[in-house]
């Protein structure tokens, strides 16, 4: 059956990426999160979740009225569901931040009545994990625009699998499913590009992340007088 093949392919791709990330980051230590960092991740996840639920309802409508094409159209706006991951990674700058923020996003969506129910839990985790892998390719040291885009683009890769089953588009064939995945990845990259850096830097400039690495980095760039509270 097609679905099983798709699952298999996705798993293989995921395993390869995780493997590469692991090899590249040998010796990196997982730093403990401060409470502020945990709360930042939780808030990002929850805000993403709350704003994402209407988005999901919209997607449900799209698919209701346009059938399988709706799945493609919906793919274009799915980038928003992944945003907490790249954003949390960018702000907190520690391994695991994206995973945690997206998992919390998933939980928040379930509790706020996402139409896709408990499935979103797993989806959130997988999205966040892949976003983290995206950053890990750059060793959690490069915080330019490229890692952000990669992080956003990778997010949908694994999460696609359960979705394919849930929406019953597995039997639409390879071409269709690859197209859907590519659209989602572009969407993820686009949302990350437009939202992550402006929002992250904007928040840091507003002085709400006192004592985090992002704020220190942003303050170094901007003129000293902008730093006065």
């Amino acid at each position: 059956m097609n679905i099983i093949l798709i699952y298999g392919a996705v798993l293989v791709v995921g395993a390869i990426l995780v493997g590469i990330a692991k090899v590249m980051n040998r010796g990196i230590k997982f730093a403990k999160f401060s409470l502020m960092e945990i709360v930042i991740m939780a808030i990002l996840g929850v805000v993403n979740g709350v704003l994402g639920t209407p988005n999901a309802m919209f997607g449900r409508f799209l698919m209701t009225f346009t059938g399988s094409y709706g799945f493609l159209a919906f793919a274009a706006i799915t980038g928003f569901f992944y945003i907490a991951g790249p954003l949390a990674g960018y702000i907190v700058r520690k391994p695991g931040a994206a995973t945690m923020a997206e998992t919390i996003n998933g939980v928040a969506q379930v509790l706020s009545g996402n139409p896709n129910g408990a499935m979103v839990l797993g989806a959130g985790f997988l999205q966040g994990l892949m976003s983290d892998i995206g950053y890990s390719f750059f060793g959690y040291r490069n915080w330019g625009i490229v890692p952000i885009i990669v992080s956003g683009a990778l997010a949908p890769l694994l999460q696609e699998a359960p979705e394919v089953y849930f929406f019953g588009v597995g039997n639409m064939g390879w071409g269709y499913n690859i197209l859907a995945t590519v659209i989602r990845m572009i969407s993820g990259a686009l949302y990350a590009l437009v939202l992550v850096k402006p929002i992250g830097d904007g928040l840091a400039k507003a002085g709400v992340f006192k004592g985090t690495e992002l704020e220190a980095a942003v303050m170094k760039q901007s003129k000293p007088k902008a730093g006065v509270m």
Partner: peptide, 9 residues
């Protein structure tokens, strides 16, 4: 005396 991380002030 105290200054926040990343700030000289």
């Amino acid at each position: 005396s105290f200054s926040y991380l990343g700030s000289d002030r």
